[in-house]
């Protein structure tokens, strides 16, 4: 949308005749996009903000209570705990995704034998929905009828079947493994396009100057991929902060409520405790956090490029 606005804007000062009409046509062109954004984003957002100022039960009358919901959030320790866990999860899973996706991207970037095959297989899990992937893994991780625990037991690796989902650490890392399996392929493709957009002559020039592979990666590849990295990072962080499906389907927030994420808590408040108004207020807080984080990441990764 911004690009359309930007291209139609310069026409105005140069040619005044018909400028009004031109503007109307411009508006007409962007109207469908504007309508979509208004109907599916602006209006719901406004309603969420409006609801957050009310005591709004799922059933029955709602009443205006001003900022009371927001004051209540300040004392809602379980929400802040959920947010802290979401933060931990986001950091760990983002590092894990990049740690897997970057080598994969380097591996499949240049054409070689079977590249197409590798690209497809690495990317394949990305086309599965999070809910279906979670259902699949909740079976794989099942201690009695799944794959991992019975396999380890049958191979003699463990003395008795080990319930992966019963305690925090194995449960948490199982989820990380599942998310990396599911998302790394997508991040890999993004990183691959970044890698391919780096001109080969730059690498060759560096090579002639005597730079080793590690120096080339640090001094050429990484800086030139700044934009791509920013995109991949923002997608990964935003996706992780909104994590819900895998924790709901595989763990139900367990073991012992240690894996409740922020969105999970919002869902619980809205549809288990029937407090829609409070859920809306929590959503607004989460939105603010997400916007702030994304802005920060953009600023962090874009600024040096402006200097270039």
């Amino acid at each position: 949308m911004t690009t359309i606005a930007a291209t139609s804007a310069p026409a105005r000062p140069r040619k005044l005749v018909g400028a009004g009409r031109r503007q109307w046509i411009g508006l007409l062109y962007v109207a469908p996009a504007v309508a979509l954004v208004v109907v599916f984003f602006i209006i719901p957002l406004g309603m969420t903000a409006w609801m957050s100022l009310h005591n709004w039960p799922l059933m029955g009358e709602h009443s205006y209570i001003g900022l009371d919901n927001y004051w209540a959030i300040l004392h809602d320790t379980r929400f802040w705990n959920a947010l802290r866990f979401t933060g931990l999860y986001t950091v760990v899973v983002t590092i894990a995704i990049f740690a897997v996706a970057f080598p994969l991207a380097l591996f499949i970037e240049r054409p070689r034998r079977l590249t197409g095959f590798y690209r497809t297989s690495f990317f394949m899990p990305a086309v599965i929905g999070f809910a279906s992937a979670s259902l699949l893994w909740s079976w794989l991780l099942n201690v009695d009828s799944g794959l991992f625990s019975p396999a380890a037991f049958d191979l003699g690796l463990t003395g008795k079947k080990f319930n992966l989902l019963a305690t925090f650490q194995p449960a948490f890392w199982s989820i990380i493994a599942m998310v990396v399996w599911k998302v790394a392929g997508f991040t890999m493709i993004i990183l691959m396009t970044g890698l391919q957009s780096i001109p080969t002559d730059l690498q060759e020039a560096a090579m002639i100057d005597g730079a080793g592979p590690f120096a080339r990666f640090r001094a050429i590849t990484l800086p030139l991929m700044r934009r791509t990295l920013a995109l991949a990072l923002i997608l990964s962080v935003a996706g992780s902060i909104l994590a819900f499906d895998q924790f709901y389907i595989i763990l139900r927030g367990g073991p012992r409520n240690q894996t409740l994420t922020a969105v999970y808590w919002i869902f619980n408040q809205s549809f288990v405790s029937f407090k829609l108004g409070y859920g809306a207020a929590l959503s607004m807080i989460l939105l603010a956090i997400l916007v702030a984080l994304s802005t920060f990441q953009l600023w962090l990764l874009r600024k040096p490029e402006g200097v270039d």
Partner: peptide
């Protein structure tokens, strides 16, 4: 009137307690 919150919710105090007291 808060049965769902107390008992049925997978993240409520009752569910958490039964899991902890049986296995913790």
């Amino acid at each position: 009137v808060v049965f769902n919150d107390l008992i049925n919710s997978a993240n409520g105090p009752w569910t958490q307690m039964v899991n902890e007291v049986f296995f913790g």
